[in-house]
Structures are given as C-alpha cells and as structure tokens.
Amino acid sequence: MIVVNTDTLPGYEISHSLGIVQGNVVRAKHVGRDIAASFKNIVGGELKGYTELLTDARRDAMARMLAQATELGADAVINVRFSTSAITQGAAELYVYGTAVKLSTSTTRAAVEGTPPPISIS
C-alpha cells in the first residue's frame, strides 16, 4: 500500500476514489511511566516514555486505517492527515484519516520518464 499525505502521486494517476478510511486510538499513559517522566521533567529534555507512547498510538491508528483500505481493495491512501484531541487529562486520542484510491500508471509520464514501479498491495 502506498501511503502519502499529498493529493497526487509521482508516476501514477488516480483513477477513482473509494472514500475516506480512518483509524483512531485513545491511549493513556500508565502510572509507572508517569512517575518516571515527572522526575525527568524536573530537568527538561526528551521524555522518551511519552514519545514511545505516541509512536505506538500512531502505528496502531495507521494499521487500522490501512486495514480498512485493504478491505476496500485500494492501491493507495492519499492526503493522509493526523489529528489529535485531549479527551481527559492523561489520555490522548490520535486520529488518522485519508482517502483510499485506485491507481493507474500514467501513460504519458511513463513514456517520458520511464516506467514507475508496479502497483502492489502489501
């Protein structure tokens, strides 16, 4: 699956849209991490625990979005956006959405620039 946050894709033409696909995750920090972070927070610097929390959340949300796209038989998800909301103190929602599309290789461009890589769903 090709995932980009732009409207277009180099080498391909978007043949038709399959609609919006989305994924969300609400994650809370656990108390152990919270305490460790509060000590680290005295001096500032990167709070690795929270960075990891967010990386995990992003991965999960993306996986859900991609699962939807695969179900629709999409070749790519374009115009991907991340959005977050603070629901309660100590939990963050990560919401990712994009448009699932079918692709076709652009014939005019291929003649000039060479053949783009084949469309593959992985």
Binding site: I2, E46, L47, G114
Partner: peptide, 23 residues
C-alpha cells in the same frame, strides 16, 4: 511535487517527539 522522479514511489514518513519543560 517539484520535478519528481516518476519511477520512484513516494512515501509518508512521520516522527514524534516529547520534550519536557524543566521546572
């Protein structure tokens, strides 16, 4: 895209960072 190479597939990259504000 500015003058893109049409043979190479574009790809999304993301990064997260949390910085503490010291006391």
């Amino acid at each position: 895209f500015f003058e893109p190479d049409h043979r190479i597939q574009a790809q999304l990259f993301t990064a997260e960072i949390t910085l503490g504000i010291d006391h």
